[in-house]
Amino acid sequence: MTEQITTPSANDTNDAPKHNLEAHNFDATDSYNFAYLDEQTKRMIRRVLLKALAIPGYQVPFASREMPMPYGWGTGGVQVTAACLTPDDCVKVIDQGADDTTNALSIRSFFASTAGVRTTEATDKASLIQTRHRIPEIELTEGQLLVYQVPIPEPLRFLEPRETETRKMHALSEYGLMHVKLYEDISQHGHIATAYAYPVNVEGHYVMDPSPIPKFDNPKMNNCAAIQLFGAGREQRIYAIPPYCHVKSLDFEDYPFDRLRAPGACALCGADDSYLDEVIMDDEGTRMYVCSDTDFCSTRREQGHVGDQSGLFDSEEG
């Protein structure tokens, strides 16, 4: 598999250009369409979403619109969210686990101004969560929508560049090449090295790209109570996983799927079961591991959980 889907940093080259969306300065007093998109575009996306739910894991083509942000900002996810929002929604946006990156803040304020929705950082308070590269740590619930930003929706693209061919392969469930690729990982590295965008099989039929989430998150897609929707703006594809679907990460009898988690506990909240990010603390390169899901971590700290270095970090925050 190419670098593009094995590391999040390589993926960032085409998925997260560092533009400042806030420069657009969306203002609620401007006369936008509800949730920015015009009615006909939302209707088109809504029809596509219904077909996507009816055929779990199948990529439905849609006519992606220009959005007031570059493709790397998750325009596919933004369009799906715009087509789903109602004024009663409470929206959370996460960017690699964090609610407070420029990207997450900007998309949140975009929907607050164009749709008048409430926003939150709390996973359990959100009715719609748009995400880039993570699934929240806590279990999602019925009625919640999880909208993924997807850079490259076709899991077979790196093995077969021709769309006509990948469509045939999906139609015939011909996924041998994908297994060969994963098996090459094993012969090269002794284990399946693919750590992000690890392919899944949905309901025993379509093989699907889960977007560049760490494979640690893959099991959360299975039997999930929430509706999972995937939008790829540049590639013009929408796909979906209805609630309680059987979603299985591809593997082999002798090499079963492994979530892969850095050993140890979060330095701030002590969690030993969450996905950890490595953070460089100072110029000497001192490192520590903290929860990638910032809402999960701060909720635990509010509950009194402490990690090895939580005192140190709090004093620095000051």
């Binding site: 949730a35 789903c84 509706i227």
Partner: peptide, 19 residues
């Protein structure tokens, strides 16, 4: 109120199709 009523209606149809 087309934008709001169609959004609210769609959300119900989405839930119906998803479940």
């Amino acid at each position: 109120d087309l934008p709001i009523q169609s959004a609210t209606a769609f959300r119900s149809v989405l839930q119906a199709m998803a479940r």
